[in-house]
Amino acid sequence: MSGDRDAEGVGAGDPLRVVPTDAPPSGACRRKGSFTPSLTLMGEHDLCPGCGEPLALRQILDSIEALGQAQRAIGVVGIGCYTALTSLMDVDLIQALHGRAPSVATGAKRMRPECLLFTLQGDGDMVNEGLQEVIHTAARGENVTCILLNNGVFGETGGHMTATTVLGQRTKNSIEGRDARLHGHPILIGDLLARLDGTAYVARASVHDAAGVARTRRFLDRAFTSQLKGQGFSFVEILTMCPTGWFIPTAEGPGYLDRELGAVHEVGELKKDGVLVGG
């Protein structure tokens, strides 16, 4: 962690020169990246400081735009904090029930095979209440892309244990840390899905740092491309920070994510073109 975090310690008498950031530079320059992602209607949202979900959203929308699918995409959104992001997403959406998005996406894809179908689900949504739906959708080889935002907690209820909560992780209903004897083991959903014959592409990414975000984007591009090629079910799991649900300072979110969740839910591609990676 950076030593610059003591914000009150810096300011006027600092010898380093502070560059103004309230307006674009007046000299010759090239804009490299804009505030809000592609395909958004507004930049503001009500998710907590330090949340990893908007980072994932940015990559999803940018990927759709970059692949030329902006006018062919349909998103099916589950129930979680990320549901609030639907008001800023400028793609067609269907709001599904908790856990049911893969089924809803299935029906939509069957009637609109020309569309790029993706789901946006949290770990409580997909791996708890909707586990059978995502597994069956994958096993059928439905040509849709399911996207899991995995932070290991029910963020919206205030930090409760989900099926992906790692052993030792403190949640409001595993206050001494998740104990396998009391609470069972976490489900590694990506690994489970990769083993199914119907899946074409399975990858797990993490947005705990810039390189991780860039990798997330690559995996999303590959998943969507797999769908566009008609290869079957594609899946991208994205580990995201939830400092509020983890009861830690926002700045510690990326480190906690990488160290705790990332150690169990290992980042990387698990299946490409229907073939297990390293298998």
Partner: peptide
């Protein structure tokens, strides 16, 4: 910074000079 900002606060410029 843009990639990791959850609130879409950053706009990034490359300076010619």
């Amino acid at each position: 910074c843009l990639l990791v900002c959850p609130d879409f606060c950053f706009e990034v410029y490359q300076l010619d000079a």
